[in-house]
Structure formats: C-alpha cells, structure tokens
Amino acid sequence: MKFTKDHEWVEVAGDLATVGITAYAAEQLGDVVFVETPDVGKTVKQGEALAVVESVKAASDVYAPVSGEVVEANGELSDSPETVNALPETGGWFAKIKLSNPGELDALMDRDAYEAFLGTL
C-alpha cells in the first residue's frame, strides 16, 4: 500500500489500483455522512479531484493518487458512508482505477514514510 501527503492510499494489483483515504484522514474528518464516488469510465490525472467525502463539519475533495480510468466505484458507500470510518483502509475504498502511468507510484510514500510524515503534522 502506498500513500500521499493528502492522506489517500492506493493498493495495486496488476494494472488495477484501489484507492481510499487513510485511517488518519477518516479520524480527522469525524463521522462521514456522505461520499460522492466518481462515475465509471471517467479518466483522472494524478492530483485531480476524484471524489468528495463529507462529514458533518466538512466536505473535502479526495484527489486521485494515480492517473487512469475509473473502472469501478464503491457503491456501498452511498448507503453506508460510515464504512469509511469503520474500515477506512479496506471496505471503505472509493474507486478502482486502471493505471495509465504506473511510474507515478514510485513517488508515493510507503507506510513507514507516511507514518513518519504524520509525525511531522
């Protein structure tokens, strides 16, 4: 699993990347009440807005950690947004992206680096 400084995670299997927000981000947001997942077929560039996550107190954009085409969105989140709080780094995933530039992954942090980054906040 790789991480961004904006608290997204990405897990790659073959050319398919599963994307979500980190446990730290879910904790900071508080109770998640709504998730707007991207349309399947949408093409995103790394760093572009991919999804919106809303808690009672804030609405935040989730940025695409990698470029590619959205091939699946987590439909369960529309009925159970609380999954993002309960299982942020597994069942609370947002979208699956077919990678168009796997090289982008190299610049992302691994877990140790991300934990160290959190220590600086």
Partner: peptide
C-alpha cells in the same frame, strides 16, 4: 445535544 451525524446520514 442533538445527533447531527444521524440527521446527515
């Protein structure tokens, strides 16, 4: 205090 999370979900 009111449960704003439930209201929004």
């Amino acid at each position: 205090r009111l449960d704003e999370t439930q209201a929004a979900r």
